[in-house]
Each structure stands twice: as structure tokens, then as C-alpha cells.
Design a binder for these strands. Sequence first.
DNA 1: TTTAATTATGCAATCGGTTGCGTAATAAAT
DNA 2: ATTTATTACGCAACCGATTGCATAATTAAA
Lengths: 338, 338
Amino acid sequence: MDKRITIYDLAKTLGVSAGTVSRSLNDHPSISRKTKERVISIANELGYKTNKFAVNLSKQKSNTIGVIVPKLNSIFMSTVLAGIEKMANEAGYNLIISQSLESMEKEKINAKTLYDSGVDALLVSLAYDTTDFDHFAYYIRNKIPLIFIDRVHNLPNCSTIIIDNKLAGFEATEHLINQGCKNLLYISGDLRRNVYSERFKGFKEALAKHGLPFDNANYLESDLSPNSVKHAMAHIKDTHVPFDGLFVANDTFAALCLKELKKENIKIPEDIKVIGFNNDPISDLVTPTLSTIHYPGYELGVLAGQSVISHLNGGINLQPTNAITLRHSLIIRESTLK
Amino acid sequence: MDKRITIYDLAKTLGVSAGTVSRSLNDHPSISRKTKERVISIANELGYKTNKFAVNLSKQKSNTIGVIVPKLNSIFMSTVLAGIEKMANEAGYNLIISQSLESMEKEKINAKTLYDSGVDALLVSLAYDTTDFDHFAYYIRNKIPLIFIDRVHNLPNCSTIIIDNKLAGFEATEHLINQGCKNLLYISGDLRRNVYSERFKGFKEALAKHGLPFDNANYLESDLSPNSVKHAMAHIKDTHVPFDGLFVANDTFAALCLKELKKENIKIPEDIKVIGFNNDPISDLVTPTLSTIHYPGYELGVLAGQSVISHLNGGINLQPTNAITLRHSLIIRESTLK
DNA sequence: TTTAATTATGCAATCGGTTGCGTAATAAAT
DNA sequence: ATTTATTACGCAACCGATTGCATAATTAAA
């Protein structure tokens, strides 16, 4: 009763071969219009559904794209994913999404699982602590498109999609300086991740350009989790020369800092000016509103989606060094007013 | 060279049949320990990887779970997804995630696509405007587990996982009343969605219990998008009897309202007390901090994942009316202080 | 040692499409 | 009307597992 209709069923009722049915359904040129129409009409009538499992086996591809992100529940990442999903969906691809939870071990397992389940391509934003990249070797060896997003690593034949984090870091820092800050603190994530190290470079370059000294006190590495805010506060208070400018590696952590600073009766922006990163919705809702760097997450996702799909379809677009850089922008709000 | 090793290759080099190899790899009882070990060791040596496509075709199942959510880029939904993903991943299932973008049409397409690609189960949180449910008929007819999350609908043989929105709405409202509010406004989403209509019921019940009148002015339907804040403000200002308490259907919109109200020089909580919903991170970062209802999104996801997996594994747990209700809690912050 | 009971393996069909190659059917050219 | 192109379709191998059933190998019982 509920048995699925196959091309063989169609072939039998039409008195043609299964091959003809298959080709008709796929609009193959070597089938006459008349036959195609007969096949299609019968297929509709009988409620034929193509069995993807069989197609997959036969074609050795799954029509799915794998994604590994550090965490799903971050507004930035979920925005990126929304962009990817939109493109994938429009192109008829399914998205298998997994999270590394910022652990290289889990990232490895996910990479393997996705490989085994036969994804046609893989999009990755690296975990916090990923140091080696052997788990991507299968993909490269088997020419499965591999694209890094945001938190990237330079591997041969892999595209990367990023913003110019160094420049963004430079601009954020220079903005603080232009607003009169003399002693800045960059609160960073793990420097092994390009996004943080690049921003750090920009930070230092801006200091250098404006003749401001840099020493270790001007840099604080953090895991950017809510629990770490108190470490950051301790660092800020313990430093001999008081900071008057804060460049924080993401808006959420910046917002947390803002809250703590206010608790300590430190005035923003009068005493300390603060700039975040990402332009998360939160940055416009806190008090004072938070200056930040707009990071176009959705566009990033869209571009990543488009890129991977053009890889898959065209096979073109496989330039050896293929790095796409999106435009960021500085957003000035209350937290850095003079 | 790069050709994949199949069970036939293993069979040939071992001098046994493919069936034996298959059974060995799956630890089938009718194979001797010795043979199993030989097979497994050769498999490792040759770098054998099972071809999921073949397994899927043979077993007619995909080891994937489909998910349709309204939007990926909401902190609540991505938190739910994080919970689902964790459970699915631990159980060896892949997650195919798609978003309806709050449109029933896209929800239908997604449901069909996921069905066609052979997901073993489907988790759904309904789009804003979904009114009919035919697109889930395949699933029910073919006994593919279908579970609704958060934004649910009662379909035969489908589980739902929710919180008690009516009670939560009641508690939020009663809290406002206890803090001295006399003229409340409930800013709601579309009442066709259970979450909003249930909260509305709770709202009205609390008013009734405390002898407060209710008329249409006490209720405002909104799409809860940032653009709609001005409508809400207009409603608040145009009403003859000024409101002194606001119950807003989610924290993000509540935060937006907070900001606008402050712009209008309305004091929170002195003039108007505000309570949100969800306990998004943002609710603790705005000024004043926002009272809200804690909605355990991650736990919801975990439970949804567990539930679907136990359906798939045990086949048990298929009670006809299977509604899981999670515990919520009232979180009192500054925005509703006396 | 022979027979019966167990245990281990092989055979071959099956899952449902795709596709290269060969040929029949039709159309065009001579 | 015959030959040559073209077009339309069929055949059958193939993708890589799984699995019911038959049989061979081994062990236990008689």
C-alpha cells in the first residue's frame, strides 16, 4: 500500500525501460519530448518520488554541504549560518551542521563524521584551540571543496572568507586614539586564531603610527567567556597607568565589561572609551551604546554558500589561493564619544 | 590510487565473502571472533571506510535528523539547536538544519525536501504564519517521528516539547501587578502561535484574578521586528489611561522598547515596569536590567534530541499524546522594581 | 565412529537509481 | 527505393553495502 513507487514500476506500466524513465525524469536530451511527457505524467499520477539514497549511491554524492562551527548559539555564527543556509537551500543543497564546541577533538570527530557521511563540501570555522589540521587531509586529498570562514587557516587549495581583521583592528584602535585615548588595552581571544592575532597586529600598528608605547600590560588574552570578566577587571584596576581606552575582541564581552565598569563607577566614555567588535544587536541596546566594527556575518555566510556552490557546480573557481575579503566598517556610538 | 576500498576488496584479499566482511564489521553474532579480528585488522590496514550511501540505500534510512526552525539567527533558536545538535551528535546522528524564514511556503518546501532526502525524523518549530499542516502528512503517514518544539501544533502521534506558556504569562503578569501596576499592556506576536496565545491567556487570567479590567487597548499584536517598535510606542502614547506595566513577548523586542521609552524620557521602572520573555543574554546587559521569564532553550533542545533519538532507537516512547513540558522561572531584575 | 546439534560462512537477491554502448526506428539525402 | 544520418530507446553493468537462506565446518552427544 505505502510501498514506494520506483522507476521500475513506472517502466512497467509504461512499457519502456527503466533507463528511459530515468533519463526522462532527468530531462536527458536523447529522449523524445513525447516520451518524456508520458513518463512525467504517469510519475505524477502514481506519486513517484525519487529515492535519494539510490541517487546518492549511484552518483557518489550526497547533495549536502557540511558545516563545522565552534558554537551554534552565538549571534554572529548563527547569522553566518543563516546566510549559508539561504544559499544552500536555494541551490538545492542540504546543510549538515555540527559544532565543535571550541574543542579540536570534537572538530576532528565532526570532520571525520561528515566525511564519512559523504558531504560534497565542507565549510569550517575553526575551534578555539585547533592547532593541527590533519583532520582536513581527507578532504584535500579527495578534492572535496574545503572552505574556511572567519576563523581560518591557510591550507593549500582551500578558500578562506574573512574580513581584513588587521585593518579593522587598526581602525578601531585609531578611532580610540583619535578620540583622545593614550593608554589602550586590547582584550583579545586566543592569538592562535587569525581573527584575534590580526586584530592585535592592527592594534599595535595603530599605536606605533601614533607614537604610543606598547608593552605587555596593553594586551590581555582571555577566553572571552562571561566568567573571565573579573580577570579583565582585575587587570584594568591593577595596572599602574590607568587605561583610557578599551578595544575588546567581541561585543558580548565588551558589553559585559561595560556593565562591570559601570558597577565600579567608572564612567563610559568619560573615563574609559570602549569599542567592541562584530556589531551584534546587543551593541546598540546597551547603555551607553557600544562603538564597534561591523562584521557582515550574513553576507559572509551568503558568500561562503555561493562560493562552495560554484565550486561544486562549475568546478571552476578553484584558484589555488582563493581568499575572499569582505568589507567591514567602523560604527561609532556613545561608548567612544569625546 | 585514491580509489575507495570496498568490502569486496577486503573480501578478496581475505579470501572470504563480502557478506562475511559485512557481518564482521557490524559485529554480527554468527561470525567467529577469529574471522572478525582478521577482517577488522585488514580493514584498518587498508584504510577501509564504509560507504554511507550504500548503507543508506540498503537500509532505507539516512542516520540524519531534519530540523526546521523559523530563523537560525536568533539567540533562542540557536541555543535550542545547540542542544539538539549535542544529543544528535552523541548518538551518531547528523542534523540537517533548514530555516523557514517565518514563511509557511518555505516551511512546506523544506519539509518536502527533507522528506525526499530521507531524514529519519523531523523536528519543527513552526513559522510565524503557518496555518495548515498538510506538509507534515507524509511524515505521519510514513511513521517518521515528527516532534514540535516551542512553536507547536497538536497533530496526532506527534510529540510536542514546550514550556507552560500560559502559566509563564500568568506569572509575568502577576509579578507586574504585585509590583503595583494597574494598567498593563501585553505586546504579543501572532496569536496563531501557541506561545503567544498561551501567554495571552495567562495575561488575561492574571488580570481577572486581581480584578483588573481588560480591554483591547491592553493588547497589541506585533511582528516583534525592530521596525515595529515605533508602532508599539505610538500605541503606548496614544492610549488615554497611561500604561504602567509592559509584558513583552520576547527580550529582544523588550530591549528595543526599553531603549525607545528611555528616549521618550519615560523612567523604567518608575513610570513603566517592563518584563520580557526568554532570558536572552541581552536581558542582563541592558540598562535597567530586564526582568524576564527564563526559557530553558538549551534543555529544550537536549530534550528534543533525546526524545527523537529514543523514538528512533527504541521505537518505544511513542505514546499517542506525548507532550513534554519544561519548567520555566521568573527572573526579577531592575526593570520591574518597585 | 556416527549422528545430531551448533556455529561459521557463502550465495545471491535486493535496495533504486545512473549511464556507456549498441541497435532499432525514423528522418533526410541521394 | 536505397543509403546515410539522426534520433530514440533498451540492455546490462554498476554504485557498495545488507540479509535470508542454504550449506559447510566444527563441536557435542550418543
